[in-house]
Amino acid sequence: MAKQSQSEIDQMIQRSQCIHRDLVRRDIIQAIQSYQCNLVLKLNRYNLNEGYSKEYLCLSGTVLCEYKENRYNIPIEIILNENHPYKSPIAQVKPTSNMFISPTNQDVQSDGTITINYLKTWRHPSSDLSNLIKAMSQSFSLSPPVYSISNANYSTAPYPTNSPSMGMPMPMGRSSLYSYSNIHQGIERENQGEISQDIYHESLKTAVLERIRNRFNELNNIEKAEIESLKKTEQYLNEGEKKLELLINQIQQKQIQTKNYITNLQNKINQISEKPLLKKDNLIEDNPIIFPAPIYKQLFQAFAEEHAIQDLLYYLADGLRKRSISLENYLKHVRELSRKQFILRATMIKCRQVAGLPTK
């Protein structure tokens, strides 16, 4: 089986409906390059139970195993889920026309479905297709999953890679094994007659119905899982829609409040601009403090201005600490205020001397 090129693999991945294409591409390339298998990537269409078909990526080919010092190629197929590698794939043994599923391998069901523990405990990123192939090879090496029916003699090993003419073995675990021709001869000797063909037809019909039923259940489970995933996605989108609607309502309310604030502010500005300015002559001087002499009034004003300057210097220092003003402006104002503060303090000392008050 010829190895596929990178472009062929990329084209099939692009045509598929897989979600994580980069992860799928890396996982598939690593699996194809494994020495324990000979697989090719295909894009097969499967009929679903809803009445329509759907394409899935699948790896089809053989897995190498060793049984009783011989190497054998077991035909398998690995179907990748759309959410691969976050969801486990479906692995099946695909026997040829002269092969049958062996009941001795506990990891392979009668319909060919592989149920090894590696698939049951599949979890990304610790699980990948390369390790899955290794796990299948180990399981098949312990007990071959298929056997062939010969017309004369039976063999006790699966189909070997180094001896193509040998047939697949009969199921192991019984005391004696017979080929189909020997079984038919024994039945004829016991019944002393020929068996009707209807028995074989019914047996074939039952086997086909069983395989169809298992395949139907398998595809049904796949669709149920996809429907469940779509329901969760729908629930997540609905919750997101409700959150977006709530945010939009809050933004609209804030917008209305902002418009109301702007309207009120504009009304206040209009009211202030419409008021006539009062003239200085109309102002009534309201001074509750009565000074016995002008020197005391001058002393009081100098004292008040000196304390106001002291407060202003404090707030300038706080503004510099908070970086509200630059250092250059801070030094400029501090220099002017300090000069004025010095003059005011000298004035207070002179007023105290004239008024006969203590200077300290």
Rank of each mutant, 00 (worst) to 15 (best):
Y330C: 08
L316S: 03
I325M: 01
L331F: 09
I325N: 00
R345L: 05
V334P: 02
R321N: 03
A346I: 06
D318Q: 13
H333D: 08
F342S: 10
R321I: 03
S338R: 12
R339S: 13
Y314V: 10
I325C: 01
R335L: 04
L327K: 11
E336G: 11
K340I: 02
K332I: 12
E336S: 15
L337I: 07
N329W: 12
L327A: 13
L327Y: 10
A317N: 14
G319H: 09
L327F: 14
I343F: 05
G319M: 15
I343T: 06
Y315E: 12
S338K: 13
K322R: 11
S338Q: 13
G319D: 12
K340C: 02
K322P: 03
K340E: 04
L312Y: 09
I325T: 01
L344S: 03
A317W: 01
L344H: 02
L327R: 10
E336W: 12
L327V: 13
L313R: 00
L312N: 10
G319E: 09
L320M: 10
D318N: 15
L313M: 05
A317M: 06
Y315G: 11
L312A: 15
K322Y: 08
Y315F: 15
L344Y: 01
R321W: 01
R321F: 05
S338M: 03
Y314S: 09
G319N: 13
A317K: 13
V334Q: 02
S326V: 06
L320K: 04
I343A: 08
K332S: 14
D318R: 11
R345G: 03
K322T: 07
L344D: 01
L327W: 07
F342V: 09
Q341N: 09
Y330D: 02
S324D: 14
L312C: 09
E336R: 08
E328Y: 09
L327T: 08
E336D: 08
S326L: 10
I325E: 00
G319F: 14
R345P: 00
A346S: 11
H333Q: 15
